[in-house]
Simulated assay, not measured.
Amino acid sequence: MDNWQNRWARNKYWVMARSQHLYDEGRFLAKNNNWSPDKEATFNKILRTAEALQPTQKTLANTYQHIWGYFKRTCTPEEKRTYLALLKELTPKNDQLGFFLQQMAEKYRVGYLLNSRLLKECFNRSDLI
Rank of each mutant, 00 (worst) to 15 (best):
M1E: 07
N3G: 09
W4E: 15
Q5N: 08
Q5Y: 06
N6P: 02
R7S: 10
W8I: 04
R10C: 05
N11W: 03
K12E: 02
Y13Q: 07
W14N: 04
V15I: 15
M16F: 13
M16V: 03
A17T: 03
S19R: 01
Y23H: 03
D24F: 05
D24E: 12
E25D: 04
R27G: 08
F28H: 10
F28V: 03
L29W: 00
K31Y: 05
N32T: 02
N33G: 06
W35H: 01
P37I: 04
D38V: 13
K39M: 01
E40I: 03
A41V: 10
F43P: 00
R48W: 06
R48L: 11
T49D: 07
A50F: 01
E51H: 06
A52Y: 07
A52I: 05
L53I: 04
L53P: 01
Q54I: 07
P55N: 02
T56C: 04
K58V: 10
T59P: 06
T59Q: 08
L60Q: 09
N62W: 07
Y64T: 11
H66R: 13
Y70Q: 11
Y70W: 09
Y70E: 10
Y70H: 14
F71V: 09
F71I: 12
R73M: 12
R73K: 15
T74M: 14
C75E: 13
C75F: 07
T76S: 15
P77H: 08
P77T: 08
Y83S: 10
L84E: 15
L84I: 09
L84R: 11
A85R: 11
A85I: 06
L86C: 12
L86D: 10
K88N: 11
E89M: 10
E89Q: 13
L90K: 11
T91D: 13
K93H: 14
D95G: 10
Q96R: 15
G98Q: 08
G98A: 08
G98V: 13
F100R: 10
Q103K: 14
Q103P: 05
M104H: 06
E106M: 14
E106S: 12
K107A: 10
Y108C: 08
Y108R: 08
R109W: 06
V110I: 13
V110N: 09
Y112A: 07
L113P: 02
L113R: 02
S116C: 06
S116V: 06
S116R: 04
R117W: 04
L118H: 01
L118D: 00
L119V: 03
K120P: 04
K120W: 04
E121G: 01
L128A: 07
L128E: 05
L128P: 04
